[in-house]
Design a protein around this nucleic acid. Structure first.
Length: 957
RNA sequence: GCCGGAGUGGUGGAAUUGGUAGACACGCCGGACUCAAAAUCCGGUGGGAGUUGAUCUCGUGUGGGUUCGAGUCCCACCUCCGGCACCA
């Protein structure tokens, strides 16, 4: 083997690593584990093994984390770098249905294929720690964690989860009583009027506790798709209100579903984002999703009824401008508030609203609709009677499902009021900037304030504009929604006039609280997490339903509840949307479905968990994957997770919200209950960019095979016909997929890995171009020829010291490469190695000191060729456990340096000076440079700026 | 509409805190080797001016600004990508 034979080398070393279990991660309790070494937990996002296999875009992140892991090992860390498969879920089940195979069979085939592809990439995972969510040994603990949620409640007084048994004990002692979802202590005025726990029936006990448990059953509006026989996530529903798969109608209707009380953690999920090292963009996405807003709840008494409608507003300072109210069509009090003569209209409106899907409703944001109920409420700040409407621009799911409408200072209310002729009263004075901007955009009425009309160039003055606005706000075509000073906002007890918005808010909230008609409140957009599906391919719930409304957890000792075998795992479709869903598990045998315990007959919960469940905690199972007694041992958990959780978590930005929010939520519950030692799971998170590829469409718009495109003069042709080019994700449908299998067959794994990294920075989207890969291939071949004589196969490495210049290059390369590796800039690391290698091309031999360092630096990036050369250099152990080279300071400094000479900021020449030269010396030398001199002639030097070691700028004029 | 991110040669990209714009690579051009081709090696390669050369000049999406000096900072705008979207 004299030439660079990548297939032989790669096969040899992959076999070697597997046989020697080179990348086994030793942890607490393992023989040979060294607890004195620092640890690094490097994690890839849990992949879903799809039937399509990987394309070259998928491994980018995996190669990146692999390089980080290999580098960390060489820097003396104990590295945990595991991989596994998130294999439950709809796509696998749908694929299984289409192909008529059992989901387990198709899933396992997909896993096997993906495993093969991953292993071909030489990723240094500890495969002994592989987990799969579909294994009962794994989902036993998913079920166990679900039970932790079920058995816990969020105690707002300490802002953490506690065992619900503690609450029950206090209820049984009658220390506390329940007011809906609130725990009321003896000292509270309400206590005496509330029923004691002992007066509750069994069913009431369960219902009452359900309002506290972190996992609970509730009637919630969901996307119900009768044809598919399941509820769907919002992402699975198209804009037309149909299912993405199969294009079946989807209905919005309330259904009894399992929910997880993630909203209890909203504040902590938001706050703790400050303590994690994630990109600001990603944190912002989570913050927006959680959607915290500060405002007030205010109660409006209904005229002629002993009722108060409660609204939530973020602008309590505009209360005096509330000229009508709007309830969501689904609001429970609509019937009661509707007058007899309005009933027909109201019913009709509610019916149409109910038939529109949520997305439908959100789609047309232009035209507001609504009807008057005939009812009136009293504005509590000024006693005015205002009409109550219903409209679908108010959502039942946010706030109280009712709003006070302030048309002058809210865009939606403004549009609605204009359409239905409701009064619009200004209560906040717009700022001058805003007023002038309205003139610029043409929203202000024409001619206002322009003293002499056109020609004079005199624009509308702010004073005139303000007067015009306050006189007639509708003459401006938009609402003023910003902050400003209050106006027309006072009653006998309180005045907001002249107060800036923040102060006005504080003033009115204090007044409302004093009067007992409202209070300040924080709201979140975040909703509780709908956690059940009616499909087969998921984790069964460890829950039994008793005959008297009892909801009983399966004993921990009886876990796992194994997914039963059923004859037909297809979903149970139903054309009638009014029929409740039939979970696939309802087809299980009675022996599975029914359980007798303590003389009672229970029915198993027949829903399954959604796909997110297994991926919410897999990073914990990797720490101790074969433990049958606990989900993770405290020793393993503390060693690998403390102090900041996963040290590096890499994945695509598509999981920015859902997975990362769900996993953080579970982790916090486990933290509160004492099962894990950190409050956040992922201390540092890094989003890798996507790999995009060009796709080509012919005249008909049909995608054509990207591999067969020919380019001529910047135009593209397929079989002679012109085609159009566009950039997009790689995929079969765009006919632009390139598989790692093909690339590796032609160029080898090392070239593939290097090229994927060389394409650009890890966090950026990059465009795949198979053509340019030869550059990397040539690099490895040149490298090989620097080490090995292709004629004889002899090593060209000699024990001699390179000259000073080459030593400097070597150590500067080590210095720079180390820096680049630390910053995940693998593209520039590779560029530096190429430069170092190029410097030796054409020389008769390669000094050992250079060869040694070069191989070490190459090891994390191109592990096979590095191992091979390492061995040829006479080493016996794996280069993957060798030390990363260290740059020697003495070679990083030059005796003589080149200083750039600028005149007035423009480069005019350079001077070579001794490294220690003073500014004066450099300056006088610089003035004499031939190319500099002419630029100084006849000018006076005003100032000289010297950037040490780099540049001298002479300011002369 | 709102919120993020990004625009640098023919191409992917480099320039870490404001300090030589274009490292490295692809492609292209020229040369060496060869009967020839491939591979390899050597040289060139942002635009314009300059007979060659030194050199000059323009140049990091557009237009302004700050600065001795701007790809980098500030303001306005354009384009592309991503997220959210009646959230009161």
């Amino acid at each position: 083997m004299n030439t660079y034979d990548f297939s032989a080398i790669e096969a040899k070393w992959q076999k070697h690593w597997e046989e020697h279990r080179t990348f086994r991660a030793l942890g607490p309790g393992d023989d040979g584990f060294d607890p004195k070494k620092p640890k690094k937990y490097v994690l890839d996002m849990f992949p879903y093994p799809s039937g399509k296999g990987l394309h070259v875009g998928h491994p980018v992140g995996y190669i990146g984390t692999d390089i980080v892991s290999r580098y960390a090992r060489m820097r003396g860390y104990n590295v945990l770098h595991p991989m596994g498969f998130d294999a439950f879920g709809l796509p696998a089940e749908q694929y299984a249905i289409e192909t008529g195979t059992h989901p387990r069979v198709s899933t396992e085939a997909n896993v096997a294929n993906m495993l093969r592809q991953l292993k071909a990439c030489a990723l240094s995972y500890d495969w002994d720690r592989e987990v799969r969510t579909i294994d009962p040994e794994y989902y036993k603990w998913t079920q166990w964690i679900f039970l932790q949620l079920f058995h816990s409640w969020f105690d707002p007084s300490v802002e953490k989860a506690r065992p619900i048994a503690e609450l029950v004990a206090r209820l049984e002692k009658d220390d506390v009583r329940l007011d809906g979802g609130e725990v009321v202590s003896k000292s509270d005025d309400r206590f005496a009027s509330l029923r004691a726990w002992s007066e509750f029936s069994t069913a009431e006990h369960h219902a009452a506790l359900g309002r506290f448990r972190l996992a609970y059953i509730d009637d919630v509006p969901v996307n119900w798709c009768p044809a598919l026989g399941t509820v769907l996530a919002n992402e699975e529903v198209t804009n037309e209100g149909r299912s993405e798969r199969g294009n079946h109608p989807v209905y919005r209707r309330p259904l009894k579903q399992w929910m997880l009380r993630i909203t209890a953690y909203a504040e902590r999920l938001l706050q703790d984002l400050n303590d994690v090292d994630w990109s600001e963009a990603l944190k912002l996405m989570q913050r927006n999703w959680i959607g915290r807003s500060e405002g007030a709840r205010v109660r409006f008494p209904v005229v002629g009824a002993d009722r108060e409608v409660e609204v939530y507003t973020t602008r309590p300072d505009t209360l005096f401008g509330a000229t009508y109210m709007v309830l969501a069509p689904e609001h429970p009090w609509v019937d009661e508030l509707t007058s007899a003569d309005r009933k027909a209209d109201v019913d009709a409106y509610r019916k149409t609203a109910a038939h529109r899907s949520e997305l439908d409703r959100q789609a047309d944001t232009k035209e507001k609709t609504g009807v008057f109920t005939g009812g009136y409420a009293t504005n509590p700040v000024n006693g005015k009677q205002i009409p109550i409407w219903i409209a679908d621009y108010v959502l039942m799911g946010y706030g109280t499902g009712a709003i006070m409408a302030v048309p002058c200072h809210d865009t939606r209310d403004f549009e609605f009021a204009q359409k239905f002729g409701l009064p619009i009263v200004p209560v906040v004075v717009p700022t001058d900037e805003w007023l002038l901007e309205q003139v610029a955009t043409g929203a202000a009425p024409e001619g206002v304030g322009s003293s002499a009309g056109a020609g004079g160039g005199a624009g509308a003055g702010p004073d005139a504009l303000r007067a015009a606005y306050l006189e007639s706000p509708t003459s401006f075509q938009v609402a003023f929604t910003g902050h400003g000073k209050g106006i027309h906002s006072k009653n006998d007890e309180v005045s907001l006039d002249g107060k800036e918005t923040p102060e006005a808010k504080r003033t009115i909230v204090a007044w409302l609280e004093g009067k007992g008609i409202g209070r300040g409140e924080v709201q979140f957009k975040l909703r509780d997490w709908l956690f059940s599906r009616q499909r087969f391919w998921g984790e069964p719930f460890p829950i039994l339903h008793g005959p008297d409304g009892e909801i009983r957890a399966v004993d921990e000792s009886d876990l796992p509840v194994v997914l039963p075998e059923i004859e037909d795992y297809k979903p149970i479709p139903n054309d009638d949307p009014e029929q409740p869903p039939q979970p696939s598990l309802s087809r299980a045998k009675d022996s599975w479905k029914f359980v007798e315990l303590d003389g009672k007959k229970y029915v198993r919960e027949l829903n399954t968990m959604p796909q997110w469940a297994g991926s919410c905690w897999y990073y914990l199972r990797y720490l101790d994957p074969r433990n049958d007694d606990v989900f993770v041992s405290p020793e393993a958990e503390q060693y690998w997770m403390s102090p900041n959780g996963v040290d590096l978590y890499v994945g695509g930005a598509e999981h920015a919200v859902l997975h990362l929010l769900y996993a953080r939520f579970w982790h916090k519950v486990l933290f509160d209950l004492g099962h894990v030692s950190t409050k956040e799971p992922f201390g540092r998170l890094y989003n890798q960019g996507y790999i995009q590829a060009y796709s080509y469409q012919d005249a008909r718009g049909i995608y054509v095979d990207a591999e067969k495109i020919e380019e001529k003069d910047g135009k593209f042709f397929y079989e002679g016909e012109p085609v159009t080019r566009s950039l997009g994700k790689m995929g079969k449908s765009l006919k632009n997929s390139v598989t790692p299998d093909d690339v590796m067959e032609q160029y080898g794994c090392d070239t593939f890995r290097l090229y994927e990294m060389y394409l650009g920075p890890l966090d950026q989207s990059k465009t795949w171009n198979t053509q340019a890969i030869v550059g990397i291939q040539r690099f490895l071949q040149r490298l090989w020829r620097n080490f090995v004589d292709e004629e004889s196969g002899a090593l060209r490495v000699v024990d001699e010291t390179p000259d000073e210049e080459m030593l400097k290059l070597l150590h500067k390369t080590i210095h720079g490469a180390t820096d680049d590796m630390d910053g995940f800039r693998f593209n520039t690391t590779i560029a530096k190695l190429i430069e170092l290698n190029n410097a030796w091309v054409g020389r008769p031999s390669l000094p050992r000191v250079v060869a040694d360092a070069m191989v070490r630096m190459l090891a994390p990036l191109a592990p096979h060729v590095a191992e091979e050369l390492w061995q040829r250099l006479g080493n016996e152990s794996s280069v993957s456990r060798a030390d990363w080279p260290v740059a020697e300071e003495q070679y990083l400094v030059d005796d003589e340096i080149e200083i750039v000479v600028q005149v007035l900021g423009k480069k005019r020449g350079t001077v070579r000076v001794a490294a220690g030269a003073s500014q004066e010396e450099i300056q006088s030398a610089a003035m004499e440079v031939d190319t500099v001199k002419p630029h100084l002639e006849g000018k006076t030097v005003r100032k000289v700026i010297y950037v040490p070691g780099k540049l001298l700028n002479i300011v002369a004029n």
